[in-house]
């Protein structure tokens, strides 16, 4: 039952706390690109890969009381903070869903900014292209973000680390 929800609960169990919906979106996408079998469908949006299905499923998990969502007013925008609840833990204990180990990858991603994860996930989105084509594409689709060659280099290293 609710296998896709249970897979997400494994993520919350491993991450303890995630700050920001954008960060959450990009983390799940990066895990997916690392071969973790998340079924949420992603499309390319203004700020990189984004999954409406994931947004809805997170909303459901909140409504079920399995994760907590704290909305913080940042004057120009809202920011959301997510963590697993006791009931969520119980749900996960009953679930028989298995995932490959994700803890290390999550730790690595948590240390990074959402801006950086946006870059990484966008690069992974174009992973059917060559390295040079990906870098060119980033300059086209992320023109406003002004990613530097240093950012790109760091992102390549990060991808190398996290995918192996």
């Amino acid at each position: 039952m609710l296998a896709n929800h249970a897979k997400l609960m494994k993520f919350f169990s491993a991450s303890e706390e995630v700050v920001g919906r954008k960060k959450l979106q990009k983390m799940i996408y990066i895990l997916k690109k690392c071969g973790v079998p998340y079924d949420e469908k992603y499309e390319f949006h203004f700020y990189g890969p984004y999954s409406e299905e994931l947004t809805l499923r997170i909303e459901e998990l909140c409504n079920l009381g399995f994760i907590s969502e704290v909305k913080e007013d940042k004057s120009n925008y809202y920011q959301y903070r997510y963590g697993m609840t006791q009931q969520g833990e119980e749900f996960l204990n009953h679930s028989q869903v298995e995932l490959p180990p994700i803890e290390d990858k999550i730790e690595k991603m948590k240390e990074k900014s959402s801006r950086f994860l946006e870059l990484v996930s966008t690069m992974l989105y174009f992973d059917d292209l060559t390295k040079a084509e990906i870098e060119e594409k980033i300059q086209v689709v992320k023109k406003k973000s002004n990613y530097t060659s240093k950012d790109l280099e760091e992102a390549w290293q990060f991808i190398e680390q996290i995918q192996h």
């Binding site: 920001g20 919906r21 954008k22 700020y47 409406e52 947004t55 809805l56 940042k74 920011q79 946006e118």
Partner: peptide
């Protein structure tokens, strides 16, 4: 989907 404004730079 119906309208969800989200947080800054999410969508």
């Amino acid at each position: 989907d119906f309208y969800r404004p989200g947080e800054e730079e999410e969508r």
